[in-house]
Protein backbone atom coordinates (compact mmCIF):
# COMPACT_ATOMS: atom_id res chain seq x y z
CA UNK A 1 0.00 0.00 0.00
CA UNK A 2 1.49 3.34 -0.96
CA UNK A 3 1.65 5.97 1.75
CA UNK A 4 3.03 8.76 -0.35
CA UNK A 5 2.02 9.27 -3.93
CA UNK A 6 3.12 11.82 -6.49
CA UNK A 7 1.18 11.86 -9.75
CA UNK A 8 2.02 14.02 -12.76
CA UNK A 9 3.49 16.73 -10.55
CA UNK A 10 4.50 19.78 -12.58
CA UNK A 11 5.87 23.17 -11.66
CA UNK A 12 7.60 25.12 -14.36
CA UNK A 13 9.99 27.84 -13.23
CA UNK A 14 10.94 28.58 -16.83
CA UNK A 15 14.24 27.95 -18.64
CA UNK A 16 14.03 24.23 -17.98
CA UNK A 17 13.95 24.52 -14.19
CA UNK A 18 11.27 23.00 -12.00
CA UNK A 19 9.68 19.57 -12.00
CA UNK A 20 7.85 18.09 -14.95
CA UNK A 21 5.25 15.35 -14.94
CA UNK A 22 6.88 13.60 -12.00
CA UNK A 23 5.22 10.45 -10.71
CA UNK A 24 6.20 7.88 -8.12
CA UNK A 25 4.81 6.23 -5.03
CA UNK A 26 6.37 5.15 -1.74
CA UNK A 27 5.07 2.13 0.14
CA UNK A 28 4.33 1.80 3.81
CA UNK A 29 7.51 0.98 5.72
CA UNK A 30 9.76 1.78 2.80
CA UNK A 31 12.87 3.95 2.79
CA UNK A 32 12.93 5.70 -0.55
CA UNK A 33 16.11 7.36 -1.80
CA UNK A 34 15.61 10.53 -3.78
CA UNK A 35 18.69 11.42 -5.76
CA UNK A 36 19.72 13.91 -8.35
CA UNK A 37 22.28 16.61 -9.05
CA UNK A 38 21.88 20.06 -7.53
CA UNK A 39 19.03 21.97 -9.09
CA UNK A 40 17.37 18.80 -10.38
CA UNK A 41 14.10 19.55 -8.57
CA UNK A 42 14.43 17.45 -5.40
CA UNK A 43 13.72 20.29 -3.01
CA UNK A 44 10.90 21.58 -5.22
CA UNK A 45 9.27 18.15 -5.06
CA UNK A 46 9.71 18.05 -1.28
CA UNK A 47 8.14 21.53 -0.94
CA UNK A 48 5.06 20.18 -2.68
CA UNK A 49 4.91 17.22 -0.31
CA UNK A 50 5.19 19.60 2.63
CA UNK A 51 2.30 21.73 1.37
CA UNK A 52 4.50 24.80 0.91
CA UNK A 53 3.79 24.91 -2.82
CA UNK A 54 0.61 24.25 -4.76
CA UNK A 55 1.13 22.00 -7.78
CA UNK A 56 0.60 23.70 -11.15
CA UNK A 57 -0.75 20.40 -12.34
CA UNK A 58 -0.81 16.88 -10.96
CA UNK A 59 -1.07 16.16 -7.27
CA UNK A 60 0.68 14.57 -4.35
CA UNK A 61 -0.85 12.78 -1.42
CA UNK A 62 0.31 11.39 1.88
CA UNK A 63 -1.92 8.80 3.55
CA UNK A 64 -4.41 9.50 0.79
CA UNK A 65 -4.70 13.17 1.78
CA UNK A 66 -3.90 15.98 -0.61
CA UNK A 67 -0.59 17.61 0.38
CA UNK A 68 -1.82 21.13 -0.37
CA UNK A 69 -5.41 21.00 0.87
CA UNK A 70 -4.92 18.77 3.92
CA UNK A 71 -1.45 19.93 4.89
CA UNK A 72 -2.30 20.61 8.54
CA UNK A 73 -3.76 17.13 8.95
CA UNK A 74 -0.76 15.52 7.28
CA UNK A 75 1.72 17.48 9.41
CA UNK A 76 0.39 15.85 12.57
CA UNK A 77 2.24 12.65 11.81
CA UNK A 78 5.04 13.98 9.64
CA UNK A 79 8.66 14.73 10.46
CA UNK A 80 10.76 16.96 8.26
CA UNK A 81 14.44 17.79 8.02
CA UNK A 82 14.83 20.82 5.75
CA UNK A 83 17.73 21.06 3.32
CA UNK A 84 18.79 24.29 4.95
CA UNK A 85 18.71 24.83 8.71
CA UNK A 86 17.57 28.33 9.51
CA UNK A 87 16.28 28.79 13.04
CA UNK A 88 15.13 31.81 14.99
CA UNK A 89 18.41 33.51 15.71
CA UNK A 90 17.94 34.56 19.31
CA UNK A 91 17.07 31.17 20.84
CA UNK A 92 19.21 28.52 22.44
CA UNK A 93 18.83 24.95 21.19
CA UNK A 94 16.99 23.98 24.38
CA UNK A 95 14.55 26.87 24.00
CA UNK A 96 13.98 26.01 20.37
CA UNK A 97 13.26 22.34 21.05
CA UNK A 98 10.87 23.16 23.85
CA UNK A 99 9.23 25.85 21.68
CA UNK A 100 8.74 23.40 18.81
CA UNK A 101 7.25 20.76 21.11
CA UNK A 102 4.74 23.25 22.52
CA UNK A 103 4.12 24.86 19.12
CA UNK A 104 3.13 21.60 17.51
CA UNK A 105 1.44 20.44 20.73
CA UNK A 106 3.61 17.36 20.65
CA UNK A 107 4.10 15.10 23.57
CA UNK A 108 7.71 14.11 23.11
CA UNK A 109 8.09 12.32 26.48
CA UNK A 110 11.60 10.96 26.79
CA UNK A 111 12.12 10.94 23.06
CA UNK A 112 13.90 14.29 22.87
CA UNK A 113 16.33 13.32 25.60
CA UNK A 114 17.03 10.01 23.93
CA UNK A 115 17.74 11.71 20.61
CA UNK A 116 20.01 14.29 22.24
CA UNK A 117 22.00 11.50 23.88
CA UNK A 118 22.19 9.51 20.69
CA UNK A 119 23.69 12.43 18.79
CA UNK A 120 25.73 13.68 21.75
CA UNK A 121 24.16 17.10 21.41
CA UNK A 122 24.25 19.67 24.19
CA UNK A 123 21.63 22.15 22.99
CA UNK A 124 22.21 24.79 25.61
CA UNK A 125 24.17 27.22 23.43
CA UNK A 126 22.65 29.89 21.18
CA UNK A 127 21.51 28.55 17.83
CA UNK A 128 23.33 31.21 15.85
CA UNK A 129 26.60 30.29 17.54
CA UNK A 130 26.26 26.60 16.73
CA UNK A 131 28.37 24.89 14.09
CA UNK A 132 26.72 23.51 10.98
CA UNK A 133 26.86 20.00 12.41
CA UNK A 134 25.23 21.03 15.67
CA UNK A 135 22.45 22.86 13.84
CA UNK A 136 21.89 19.77 11.75
CA UNK A 137 21.54 17.70 14.91
CA UNK A 138 18.98 20.15 16.30
CA UNK A 139 17.08 19.76 13.02
CA UNK A 140 17.21 15.97 13.30
CA UNK A 141 15.91 16.02 16.87
CA UNK A 142 13.10 18.39 15.82
CA UNK A 143 12.07 16.05 13.01
CA UNK A 144 12.03 12.90 15.13
CA UNK A 145 10.92 14.08 18.56
CA UNK A 146 7.18 13.67 18.02
CA UNK A 147 7.63 10.14 16.69
CA UNK A 148 6.12 10.77 13.23
CA UNK A 149 4.81 8.06 10.91
CA UNK A 150 6.17 9.62 7.73
CA UNK A 151 9.57 11.27 7.44
CA UNK A 152 10.77 13.60 4.72
CA UNK A 153 14.50 14.11 4.99
CA UNK A 154 16.29 16.57 2.73
CA UNK A 155 20.00 15.76 2.84
CA UNK A 156 19.72 14.82 6.50
CA UNK A 157 23.40 14.15 7.20
CA UNK A 158 24.97 17.20 5.61
CA UNK A 159 27.45 18.70 8.04
CA UNK A 160 27.64 15.61 10.24
CA UNK A 161 30.93 13.82 10.86
CA UNK A 162 31.22 10.13 9.80
CA UNK A 163 30.43 8.80 13.29
CA UNK A 164 27.23 10.84 13.51
CA UNK A 165 26.32 9.93 9.94
CA UNK A 166 26.53 6.33 10.93
CA UNK A 167 24.38 6.94 14.02
CA UNK A 168 21.85 8.64 11.80
CA UNK A 169 21.79 5.63 9.51
CA UNK A 170 21.12 3.43 12.55
CA UNK A 171 18.26 5.72 13.56
CA UNK A 172 16.73 5.50 10.08
CA UNK A 173 17.03 1.71 10.13
CA UNK A 174 15.33 1.52 13.53
CA UNK A 175 12.49 3.73 12.33
CA UNK A 176 12.16 1.61 9.23
CA UNK A 177 11.93 -1.50 11.39
CA UNK A 178 9.11 0.22 13.29
CA UNK A 179 7.19 0.57 10.03
CA UNK A 180 7.85 4.24 9.32
CA UNK A 181 7.77 5.48 5.74
CA UNK A 182 10.76 7.58 4.78
CA UNK A 183 11.67 9.73 1.80
CA UNK A 184 15.31 10.74 1.88
CA UNK A 185 17.25 12.89 -0.51
CA UNK A 186 20.96 12.29 -0.27
CA UNK A 187 24.35 12.48 -1.89
CA UNK A 188 25.97 9.93 0.37
CA UNK A 189 26.45 6.56 -1.22
CA UNK A 190 26.79 4.70 2.05
CA UNK A 191 23.68 6.25 3.51
CA UNK A 192 21.55 5.29 0.52
CA UNK A 193 23.12 1.86 0.14
CA UNK A 194 22.53 0.95 3.77
CA UNK A 195 19.06 2.35 4.27
CA UNK A 196 17.10 2.61 1.06
CA UNK A 197 14.91 -0.05 -0.50
CA UNK A 198 14.38 1.81 -3.71
CA UNK A 199 15.93 4.81 -5.36
CA UNK A 200 14.60 7.40 -7.78
CA UNK A 201 16.93 9.65 -9.69
CA UNK A 202 15.68 12.92 -11.06
CA UNK A 203 17.48 15.20 -13.43
CA UNK A 204 16.28 18.49 -14.91
CA UNK A 205 13.00 17.96 -13.10
CA UNK A 206 12.21 14.64 -14.73
CA UNK A 207 12.34 11.13 -13.38
CA UNK A 208 15.45 9.62 -14.90
CA UNK A 209 15.50 6.20 -13.26
CA UNK A 210 13.83 4.28 -10.46
CA UNK A 211 14.82 0.85 -9.22
CA UNK A 212 15.66 -1.36 -6.25
CA UNK A 213 18.91 -0.49 -4.58
CA UNK A 214 20.02 -4.14 -4.87
CA UNK A 215 19.52 -4.13 -8.64
CA UNK A 216 21.40 -0.90 -8.99
CA UNK A 217 24.24 -2.03 -6.76
CA UNK A 218 24.70 -5.23 -8.76
CA UNK A 219 25.11 -3.25 -11.91
CA UNK A 220 27.22 -0.50 -10.44
CA UNK A 221 30.41 0.46 -12.14
CA UNK A 222 33.23 2.19 -10.34
CA UNK A 223 36.24 4.09 -11.53
CA UNK A 224 39.78 3.29 -10.45
CA UNK A 225 42.81 5.42 -11.20
CA UNK A 226 45.91 3.29 -11.64
CA UNK A 227 49.25 5.10 -11.50
CA UNK A 228 52.14 3.40 -13.27
CA UNK A 229 55.88 4.01 -13.26
CA UNK A 230 55.97 5.80 -16.61
CA UNK A 231 53.88 6.93 -19.56
CA UNK A 232 54.87 3.97 -21.75
CA UNK A 233 53.74 1.47 -19.15
CA UNK A 234 50.49 3.39 -18.86
CA UNK A 235 49.93 3.22 -22.61
CA UNK A 236 50.60 -0.53 -22.60
CA UNK A 237 48.36 -1.00 -19.55
CA UNK A 238 45.54 0.79 -21.36
CA UNK A 239 45.83 -1.69 -24.23
CA UNK A 240 45.07 -4.69 -22.03
CA UNK A 241 41.40 -4.88 -22.88
CA UNK A 242 40.04 -3.32 -19.71
CA UNK A 243 37.32 -0.65 -20.01
CA UNK A 244 39.47 2.45 -20.12
CA UNK A 245 37.88 5.77 -19.25
CA UNK A 246 40.93 7.94 -19.91
CA UNK A 247 44.74 7.90 -20.05
CA UNK A 248 46.64 10.85 -18.74
CA UNK A 249 50.48 10.66 -18.64
CA UNK A 250 51.25 7.74 -16.35
CA UNK A 251 47.72 7.41 -15.00
CA UNK A 252 44.98 5.22 -16.41
CA UNK A 253 41.38 5.47 -15.28
CA UNK A 254 39.49 2.21 -15.75
CA UNK A 255 35.83 1.42 -15.22
CA UNK A 256 35.16 -1.76 -13.29
CA UNK A 257 31.84 -3.53 -13.07
CA UNK A 258 31.88 -6.81 -11.15
CA UNK A 259 35.28 -7.66 -12.72
CA UNK A 260 37.71 -6.35 -10.18
CA UNK A 261 39.68 -9.61 -10.47
CA UNK A 262 40.55 -8.86 -14.09
CA UNK A 263 41.93 -5.52 -13.04
CA UNK A 264 43.96 -7.09 -10.26
CA UNK A 265 45.48 -9.72 -12.51
CA UNK A 266 46.45 -7.13 -15.10
CA UNK A 267 47.92 -4.91 -12.42
CA UNK A 268 50.10 -7.79 -11.23
CA UNK A 269 51.93 -7.79 -14.53
CA UNK A 270 52.66 -4.05 -14.61
CA UNK A 271 54.84 -1.69 -12.58
CA UNK A 272 51.91 -0.22 -10.65
CA UNK A 273 52.86 2.55 -8.23
CA UNK A 274 49.48 3.34 -6.77
CA UNK A 275 45.77 2.80 -7.12
CA UNK A 276 42.95 5.11 -6.05
CA UNK A 277 39.17 5.14 -6.25
CA UNK A 278 38.21 8.77 -6.79
CA UNK A 279 35.06 10.06 -5.16
CA UNK A 280 32.23 9.70 -7.55
CA UNK A 281 28.98 11.17 -6.64
CA UNK A 282 26.06 8.89 -6.35
CA UNK A 283 24.09 10.32 -9.22
CA UNK A 284 27.06 9.95 -11.52
CA UNK A 285 27.43 6.29 -10.61
CA UNK A 286 23.78 5.51 -11.12
CA UNK A 287 23.39 7.55 -14.24
CA UNK A 288 26.35 5.81 -15.82
CA UNK A 289 24.51 2.58 -15.33
CA UNK A 290 21.49 3.99 -17.05
CA UNK A 291 23.60 5.22 -19.95
CA UNK A 292 22.71 8.81 -19.27
CA UNK A 293 25.47 11.37 -19.16
CA UNK A 294 26.59 11.49 -15.57
CA UNK A 295 28.07 14.91 -16.08
CA UNK A 296 25.67 17.80 -16.00
Amino acid sequence: MSVCEIQGLTRDYGSGRGVFDLSFAIDQGEVFGFLGPNGAGKTTTIRHLMGFLKPESGYCTIDGKDCWKNRVDIQKTLGYIPGEMVFFDDMTGTEFLSFMAKYRKADSNGRTKELLDRFELDPRSKLRKMSKGMKQKVGIVTAFMHDPEVLILDEPTSGLDPLMQSRFIDLVLEEKARGKTILMSSHMFEEVERTCDRVAIIKNGRLEAMDDVETLKAALSRKYVVTLENDDAAAAFAGEGLRVFEVSHNQVTVIVQNNIKDLISVMNRYPVVNIAAPNQNLEEIFLQYYGGSGRS
Binding site: E84, M100, Y103
Partner: peptide, 14 residues
Protein backbone atom coordinates in the same frame (compact mmCIF):
# COMPACT_ATOMS: atom_id res chain seq x y z
CA UNK B 1 13.17 35.43 3.35
CA UNK B 2 15.58 33.73 5.75
CA UNK B 3 13.85 30.34 5.72
CA UNK B 4 12.91 30.00 9.38
CA UNK B 5 9.23 29.92 8.33
CA UNK B 6 9.93 26.28 7.44
CA UNK B 7 9.73 25.23 11.08
CA UNK B 8 6.50 27.14 11.66
CA UNK B 9 4.80 25.44 8.72
CA UNK B 10 6.31 21.97 9.11
CA UNK B 11 3.91 21.51 12.00
CA UNK B 12 0.18 20.88 12.38
CA UNK B 13 -0.56 24.60 12.68
CA UNK B 14 -2.75 26.30 10.10
Amino acid sequence: DRGSMTFLLAAPVK
